[in-house]
């Protein structure tokens, strides 16, 4: 891997350095499919880059990492460029100082790959309305993560307010295996679900989200109850007759599915690393309408 540091630079210098490095390596036209912008602070930078690079193995991308530094310092742009065999695409870490922290979009915009999708990801703090954010405006897909907010449940409940098609949240992505398992369990009809319970660790944003999805789809009241975790631990759906469909996961890896009139079965249901969540997000870049109706349900707002 080749790493290259530029201090006090500009977007056009970064751009030409990228081209030059690519040519030096003999692969000027690699098939990158999208630009992934990660907006993150210095502390979260390492994990974000790692997850993004791993996700880029499935979706070769140009990864731009925006790190805002001290706004009190004089204006400066520092860039660290990584190109190489270990990373399928290109990684550029951008450190912004001074007033430039307010104008990150002016740096990002010329570095986007031409005519391919742009995805912005806020692994930590995120703007209230991602689509109105200067960088968010450049993207067709905006990924937030409610889990990293101070109050995760409040954060996910508030998502509906600033929702614009193209938004999604990793708290929702984390639910895909659960939703897939529940949907598969209901492929053989069990009758009308009267009520249900989702058990999750305290403060886990995915719990209320799953409950909202279930109540939206099944049109039944679904409670959220606290458990000792980790993460989601159980879903219980009670059919009108009083029988129960139950998914239990106590060790964050293997779940047990219990269905009326059927033997218990164990199913792999492991929690996934961020890189896999991100890779799932990048697989489809159209608006996630089901997510939209779920967060609106969660916010107790009629669907718009």
């Amino acid at each position: 891997m080749t790493s290259f540091n530029l201090t006090g630079t500009t977007a056009s210098k970064i751009s030409s350095t990228l081209t030059r490095l690519r040519h030096q390596m003999g692969a000027p036209a690699i098939g990158m499919v999208l630009t992934l912008v990660a907006v993150v602070d210095e502390a979260g930078q390492y994990d974000a880059v790692r997850a993004a690079t791993e996700a880029a193995r499935e979706h070769p991308s140009r990864i731009l990492v925006v790190i805002n530094r001290d706004p009190a310092e004089p204006n400066r742009l520092d860039a660290e460029i990584r190109v190489g065999e270990s990373a399928p695409g290109e990684v550029v870490l951008l450190r912004l100082y001074g007033d430039l922290t307010e104008h990150a979009d002016s740096v990002i915009s010329p570095l986007l790959l031409t005519d391919t999708p742009v995805v912005v990801w806020w692994p930590g703090e995120c703007p209230k309305v991602p689509a109105k954010d200067p960088i968010g405006q450049l993207a067709g897909r905006r990924i937030t993560d409610a889990r990293s907010a101070g109050d995760p449940v409040a954060a996910i409940t508030g998502r509906a307010e600033g929702y614009v098609p193209g938004d999604t949240d990793l708290a929702w992505t984390r639910l895909t295996p659960w939703r897939s398992l529940l949907a598969a369990a209901l492929d053989q009809p069990i009758g009308k679900v009267a009520e249900g319970v989702v058990e999750a660790a305290r403060g886990n944003p995915s719990g209320p989200l799953l409950a909202a999805w279930l109540s939206d789809r099944l049109n039944a009241p679904i409670q959220v109850s606290e458990s000792s975790g980790p993460g989601l631990t159980a879903v219980r759906l009670t059919v009108a007759g009083g029988e129960e469909l139950k998914v239990n996961r106590s060790d964050a890896r293997l779940a047990t599915l219990s269905k009326p009139g059927q033997p218990d079965r164990r199913v792999a249901l492991a929690r996934r690393p961020t890189s896999e969540l991100l890779a799932e997000e990048l697989r489809r870049l159209d608006p996630d309408e089901v997510y939209a109706s779920t967060i609106h349900r969660l916010a107790k707002k009629p669907r718009s």
């Binding site: 992505t173 897939s180 492929d187 789809r217 099944l218 489809r284 159209d286 089901v290």
Partner: peptide, 20 residues
Amino acid sequence: TVAANPLRDPRDKRLPRVAG
């Protein structure tokens, strides 16, 4: 399949095709 299973939705592209 939507009619039979309320959890399935053609718009829900995250859910994979799973065999019965």
